[in-house]
């Protein structure tokens, strides 16, 4: 495929600790094409944020990429050193985090932050940059953009701040946006606004999005493809409609059945017994087997099959054997 923006192959992240070497991300492969949205879902500790941080080259030491490759627009980026990676991060990858304040400088007016980013990465004049900054703020729906470029981040509400962050992430016209729980801190009505905005902007510009979230509803409405992670590994990967309506991995099946909507009021929810194991206490074999209703001896002995991008859907020896 020629229009693949992001390609991750067998990515492994390791953290050396006292309890041994942890693998928050283990042999993960995925692809995002131009203009597409890949949802990455999983429970806390599943490694979804760690994957996002690995892609943007912002892993907190001692965490580091210990294996695999990350390709952006046909160029390998996981081997880049700090400075070239910084250029890539500003120019080709935009970032939106859960807390908008982490992406904004509290001491600079937002207009300056936008123009600075553009001047660094685009070949334009200062006055042109200011014009574009106002346009960018108007585009993300900030009323009175021409006056508000002089405002500081704290003068905006949470929803408006996240809009500014999106404007900042998109102002250098990146080909990929990594959005890590962009709406988790926001109210339902504002969340709907932000999601609609992200979707519209990326459709217009053909930007690929890696949308990291724990909210299946957001994924269903937003993503084209979905990657379900469990304990650092890819559990299931495929088109969003297939994965959500006909999941084949027992974990995805349990997850879908345990959301309150699936029970349609009053009835008991389906529950997956236990909780996701800590990385320090990963069981042998498939990490999900202690909670799995269809686990067999093979699952206790052998790690689940590794999913390559474009392979079959579920990383499970017995995928699809339990009814959804």
């Amino acid at each position: 495929m020629t229009d693949t923006v992001l390609k991750v192959v067998n990515l492994t992240v390791k953290i050396p600790t006292r309890q041994g070497v942890l693998r928050p991300v283990d042999k993960l492969s995925l692809e995002i094409a131009k203009g597409k949205i890949l949802g990455v879902v999983g429970e806390s500790g599943a490694g979804k944020s760690m994957t996002g941080n690995a892609v943007i080259g912002l892993l907190d030491p001692p965490a580091h990429i210990s294996g695999g490759e990350i390709w952006l627009n046909g160029k390998r980026i996981d081997t880049l050193t700090r400075e070239p990676m910084r250029a890539v991060r500003g120019k080709q990858i935009g970032m939106v985090f859960q807390d908008p304040l982490t992406s904004l400088n509290p001491l600079l007016p937002i207009g300056d932050q936008l123009t600075e980013t553009m001047l660094e990465h685009l070949d334009i004049s200062a006055s042109e940059a200011e014009k574009r900054a106002i346009a960018a703020l108007e585009e993300v729906g900030i009323p009175g953009a021409a006056e508000r470029i002089k405002s500081y981040p704290h003068e905006f509400s949470g929803g408006m701040r996240q809009r500014v962050v999106i404007a900042l992430a998109l102002c250098a016209e990146p080909s990929l946006v990594v959005a890590d729980e962009p709406t988790t801190a926001l109210d339902v009505s504002v969340q709907a606004q932000i999601i609609a905005l992200l979707k519209r902007l990326c459709a217009e510009r053909g930007t690929a999005i890696m949308l990291i979230t724990h909210d299946m509803g957001v994924i269903a409405e937003t993503a084209d493809d979905v990657a379900v992670m469990y304990a650092g590994r890819m559990a299931e990967l495929g088109p969003v409609r297939d994965v959500l309506t006909r999941p084949t991995h027992p974990y995805t099946q349990g997850l879908m059945a345990s959301t309150p909507l699936a029970a349609k009021g009053g009835k008991r929810l389906n529950q997956i017994p236990g909780a996701m194991p800590r990385l320090t206490e990963l069981p042998a074999g498939c990490a999900f087997h202690p909670r799995c209703p269809i686990a067999k001896d093979k699952c206790r002995a052998d790690p689940a099959p590794t999913l390559g991008a474009g392979d079959g859907r579920a990383a499970c020896w017995f995928a699809g054997e339990a009814g959804p």
């Binding site: 339902v188 009505s189 969340q191 709907a192 999601i195 909210d215 299946m216 509803g217 957001v218 269903a220 409405e221 969003v240 409609r241 959500l244 309506t245 879908m256 959301t259 909507l261 699936a262």
Partner: peptide
């Protein structure tokens, strides 16, 4: 506004 699981 609430996201729907079947709101593909």
């Amino acid at each position: 506004a609430a996201p729907k699981l079947d709101g593909f």
